[in-house]
């Protein structure tokens, strides 16, 4: 999908997602169904609107793009066959590339900590995630009161459940990181 006379950022989004933000007609169905929307500063449809208006900075600095869980509820319900989840992913990539930090600095740290668990264990390891995130942010005792319940409910294991071949996952992530910096 190539378009003439488009802004380089839009073109980048089109290249990354194979869809044009102009397709969104702002019905708001994505925002209506988003399970994490209550934690967003800007609802998904507004982030798309910023891009449509050319307010790229507002979109790239939005907390929403980092809080998006990528659950695809929006994408599966969009009446215009637009995929907001893909769009959010592209914005994250562009923001990281351009060094634009989200207004909430910790969001990116969480993402890094999460990816680190995957890289080392092949799947999420909650205790490791908590450790890495706390160390990165320095907010060591925030949320500590949630810990007992979480541990009792078996939500936090003390040892990681590694997959058989962690090397393969590691190489995939390394390759992706390398490919991105090219």
């Amino acid at each position: 999908m190539e378009n003439n006379h488009v802004h380089p950022t839009i073109q980048k989004i089109i290249n990354l997602t194979n869809q044009d933000p102009a397709n969104c007609y702002q019905c708001g169905k994505c925002s209506a169904g988003c399970p994490v929307r209550d934690y967003f500063d800007d609802a998904p449809n507004r982030v798309i609107r910023f891009v449509q208006l050319g307010l790229y900075d507002r979109a790239l600095k939005s907390k929403a793009i980092w809080l998006c869980a990528g659950c695809q509820t929006c994408s599966s319900r969009c009446p215009q066959n637009f995929e907001p989840a893909k769009f959010m992913d592209a914005l994250r990539e562009i923001a990281a590339e351009e060094g634009i930090a989200p207004s909430d600095k910790n969001v990116q740290k969480f993402h890094k900590a999460f990816l680190n668990q995957i890289k080392n264990n092949g799947r999420s390891f909650e205790l490791g995630l908590i450790r890495d995130y706390k160390l990165a942010t320095g907010k060591l005792f925030q949320d500590i009161d949630a810990a007992p319940t979480a541990i009792l409910k078996g939500k936090i294991g003390f040892t990681p459940h590694k997959i058989k071949d962690t090397k393969k996952i590691k190489s995939i992530i390394d390759k992706a990181v390398k490919g991105n910096t090219k």
Partner: peptide, 12 residues
Amino acid sequence: VKGEDTLAGVRV
């Protein structure tokens, strides 16, 4: 009924 008021930017 889960909706969003896109004018106010709030969930309804």
